[in-house]
Write a protein that binds this DNA or RNA. Sequence first.
DNA 1: CATGAATGAGCGTTCATTCAT
DNA 2: AATGAATGAACGCTCATTCAT
Lengths: 209, 209, 209, 209
Amino acid sequence: MSVPAAQKKGIRAAQKEARPKEIVESALAIFARDGFAGTRLEDVAERVGISKGTIYLYFDNKEELFKACVRETVGAHIQQTMQMAATFEGSTSDLLREIFRRVSATLSKPGYRTILILLISEGQRFPELVSFYHSEMIGPGIEGLRAVIKRGVASGEFRDTGLSDFPMMLMSPVIASVIWTHLFSKVGDFDFNAALQTHLDTMMDGLKA
Amino acid sequence: MSVPAAQKKGIRAAQKEARPKEIVESALAIFARDGFAGTRLEDVAERVGISKGTIYLYFDNKEELFKACVRETVGAHIQQTMQMAATFEGSTSDLLREIFRRVSATLSKPGYRTILILLISEGQRFPELVSFYHSEMIGPGIEGLRAVIKRGVASGEFRDTGLSDFPMMLMSPVIASVIWTHLFSKVGDFDFNAALQTHLDTMMDGLKA
Amino acid sequence: MSVPAAQKKGIRAAQKEARPKEIVESALAIFARDGFAGTRLEDVAERVGISKGTIYLYFDNKEELFKACVRETVGAHIQQTMQMAATFEGSTSDLLREIFRRVSATLSKPGYRTILILLISEGQRFPELVSFYHSEMIGPGIEGLRAVIKRGVASGEFRDTGLSDFPMMLMSPVIASVIWTHLFSKVGDFDFNAALQTHLDTMMDGLKA
Amino acid sequence: MSVPAAQKKGIRAAQKEARPKEIVESALAIFARDGFAGTRLEDVAERVGISKGTIYLYFDNKEELFKACVRETVGAHIQQTMQMAATFEGSTSDLLREIFRRVSATLSKPGYRTILILLISEGQRFPELVSFYHSEMIGPGIEGLRAVIKRGVASGEFRDTGLSDFPMMLMSPVIASVIWTHLFSKVGDFDFNAALQTHLDTMMDGLKA
DNA sequence: CATGAATGAGCGTTCATTCAT
DNA sequence: AATGAATGAACGCTCATTCAT
């Protein structure tokens, strides 16, 4: 802060700023593999190439580290998608497909899949995290979806099914695919995208007027 | 020895026979709350009103207890449903609705919901369990669903969508509902059955010829 | 005691009388294999074909069972040998050889070897047992040996070495052989009797006048 | 890093280097008192003034700690003695006496006596340890002794008794003395050195031509 | 007399957390 | 800022011992 120049910010400082993100990334991988209780901070540290003690310079304890993993990984995606939806000019069918494309593109990345799985696995132990997630991410997302359905009904594209009361169900094929992949990708092969696309087509047909 | 066997089965024997089930039920609850690694066998024992050591009279170790929880809870349900499907006489739409009704009735019970959540949470740490599950439960279930879809297409009720390649996706709304309930039932209310029914209606419409 | 006839003493009674011995024999084997702390009473019971609880009908606890093993296994041997020595008529060399023959014959039996090893292994935890052993078995034995040496010196067969002050050392080759066999019988072969005999010859030569 | 290394080695580093030896010494004492299975690592730790967990920073588990006790305590002694024997210039009698002097000096120290007792007590449970011992320590020792006997026979000092086939028996008085001391030192007094010396004299006389 | 289900204290081992360096 | 040695609480598992049957 009181340091004269930006150049002065040397390697050390750069390292220091990068640390939390490095740790979170490492932790995410280990949490995903071993679960919360099963994760050893030593493994997390080793993956970053630092010592166990160093983690405690950046995070109060294991629980806070876990929360940071969840919080800092999802972020902007939902907002971006909602903005896109608000200004979309084509048909509502195309809008819905675009939304599915984005959401599934995000959730098909291992990192994000991990978050979902972790939330399911450990949610009960971290109620604040769940309600944070619900209010900050899921809630707005649901409202966005509801708006899209209403847009389709208003334009005469969709029938007025009760689905606008449960917009989150639109995402069920995405969620099911993620879980299927997570559980059985080693047991048998499963074409995530083809399965999803097929199901979406059926669902869209069901929505159409 | 020379005593009539039926009367002889005293309190002790009755207790002994009941123990495994009691322990599994208790374990199911605690595993669901705390995850596999987070579960303390002492908690499991206390819930049954026995001592820690007693668990080891019936299960070799924590892992075997966990497996028993999964194995002994699901079992017959899938087979029953498949038999029903094989002999069903009404329309395929009605058959599909009946299948959904059964599956969701089962999965809406806390005990069975727990199994699904546990499988998602701990699957990665128990590959044998997952593949056991996949081959014994899920695989047959998928084949059953595929047969139903084909029945509908053959009878002219359903269009020939690609969904017969991914029959498991038919279950996605059930799965999503279970997860939604698990995660957010404390945060906000969610009418499991209404949500499911609404989504199913939409999906069925999508399937119809 | 107040029972009319000897025949009346049925199978049950015979069993009951035999039990302690059976248990001790089994325990001896397990103690020898696993040491005191390492021995599980369940293993002892299983070897006899009874249940764990039954042991407690005959022995107060594990420690008492161990003591019984040591106490009841040695018995008459020393006394017999001393009586033989007192009435022996040949040369003292021959007497000494006969003593060695008897002692080593006894200690080469696995059961008796076991006692010696157990005493060495666990003696420190059972001081009473050690002093019982010392006063009842070892002490008289030493006095017997001292008498033999003095007999040899008196008759002019042996020189008057200081060995009469440490008669127990005469037994050292026997003890060393037992231990050697115990430790290394699996590693390499070792002719217990030949080794012993050879050493004794040397020692006897050393004693001769 | 840029600090002169020798001075840098602070208290911590010094402690860390000393730890394994401290722990082994403590463990040796407790193992000797309680046997392998009977030893509580907490007791070992307490004796050093550290916590139970610290032991695991230096040894993988109880068994490895036990092995370390055996390995790190004997080591160089045999080699030193053998080198001495190879270059000894006096009579073979004197050489043999010198060997006895060294071996018994070593084994009369409580620490080394402990090792022998432990080996006898726990050998059956640690076959690798026993065979390690046999090949690395005992085997060479025996060959050394055999060479000495042959040297004596060659020089005409000793008769050609069969003892060169069982050289280990030469050590039997030492072994017997150690065991006697271990078992009965509390029961009665026993002059280890006098007993040994007397017996050796007898034995040497037996060897002489 | 015998059983064996049940107990509960105890120990080996792990690991989140601390703190002197 | 970073380390890593040390801690100590916690937990899985074992087994001597008890006691209802």
